[in-house]
Design a protein around this nucleic acid. Sequence first.
DNA 1: TGCTGAATGGCACGCAGTGCCGTTAGAGTG
DNA 2: CACTCTAACGGCACTGCGTGCCATTCAGCA
Lengths: 213, 213
Amino acid sequence: MEGRAEVRRDLVAAAVELFHSKGYDDTTVDDIAAAAGVGRRTFFRYFRSKEDAISPDHETGLARVAEVFDGAGPGEPTGSLVLRAGETVFDLYTDDPRLSVERFRLTHEVPALRDRESASVDHYRRLFIRHLRERFTDGDGELRAAVVGAAVVAAHNLALRAWLADGAPADGIDACRARFRRVADMLPVEPDTTLALVTQRLEAAVERLEGTA
Amino acid sequence: MEGRAEVRRDLVAAAVELFHSKGYDDTTVDDIAAAAGVGRRTFFRYFRSKEDAISPDHETGLARVAEVFDGAGPGEPTGSLVLRAGETVFDLYTDDPRLSVERFRLTHEVPALRDRESASVDHYRRLFIRHLRERFTDGDGELRAAVVGAAVVAAHNLALRAWLADGAPADGIDACRARFRRVADMLPVEPDTTLALVTQRLEAAVERLEGTA
DNA sequence: TGCTGAATGGCACGCAGTGCCGTTAGAGTG
DNA sequence: CACTCTAACGGCACTGCGTGCCATTCAGCA
């Protein structure tokens, strides 16, 4: 007899294989259960729905992001914090690249799965925003939290999808991470940081030059 | 006999009323059709699914955004362009504020509707990104398109939802629009615009001062 | 009056997901 | 070994969504 973990793995394998060969819509839950050698009712004891059979464990990803935010000191810059939180999610996809690539292909071809993906991405976005609001306390803090949260999640997905579309090569993980990190330069994590900094330096330079004149 | 438009209106009214009184999950398509005085089969001739009965016409909104982008001259700044495109969508919600408010309430309480909303918002995001990519042609153009697109849609939803949560008062529309427009200051629509501009002026000032010295 | 096409309603079907219950395997106890 | 208890499983029936098919109705037209 097989344990629970083995049955679950068999079901995922059967689902992926059938979705690939027969197509998602033409594959019924009965097909998956039969291919895995279990009853139809058992399938629904392991997965809430047919789509769940190939969905990654989003609960885990959300928990990791929350953990990063909760464990961060108040002194850590928000820019590096959101990068750390985002990178924590990468591991969920690098653990099983083959499965991730197949899932990526399916979520791009099947409308139902694409919409489901959108919904789960939105959960990440909301989680980021909820934590960012605590750090943005100025007048437009809520707006900036929404903008930064949406931007980080978008950049994360952009980098991840480019890597998956490329077949998820092992030597491409670093490039994927680097690509994601570039978003840090585009975030309004501090109000008018650049302008204020340069203005300050400009004034200092003018003062210095006026002193020598 | 009633025309097609009347039947459709009756179905929407019946759906909204029943979702409100009985709850979304406890309302069947048979209930809606019966309340509207038509057969169950007819319901599915007007709406693709049960959720569709209270969804706004996203196709229209997407078409409006595409129209703004297609009709814009190449000289128009990207910042003002995305603002114009975003504001075009507001009208879809201001046309029938009562319906919009009820829909807002439902999409926040019913998980199935919330996920559907996430998916439709994602369609807007992808549309923005697709058009923005044509305008961002530098090295990180794709990343910036993703960031700006996600940020604009997020800001739009933030402003819209705040207005809807407030009961969609007629005198709050301008404040809603103003709130959305503030996102323009946070977008990386031009690479290093501020830094490049100020640096250039700094160098010019230094040269000038050195000349007088 | 007879014809035509569009809208409708009814019927049956496939499939997702759930509740219920009988059965079975395996661990623990005497 | 015999008994019990529990967790997992399979089967069955049911609700509800969404679709295909077909007969009916009704308006417009020759």
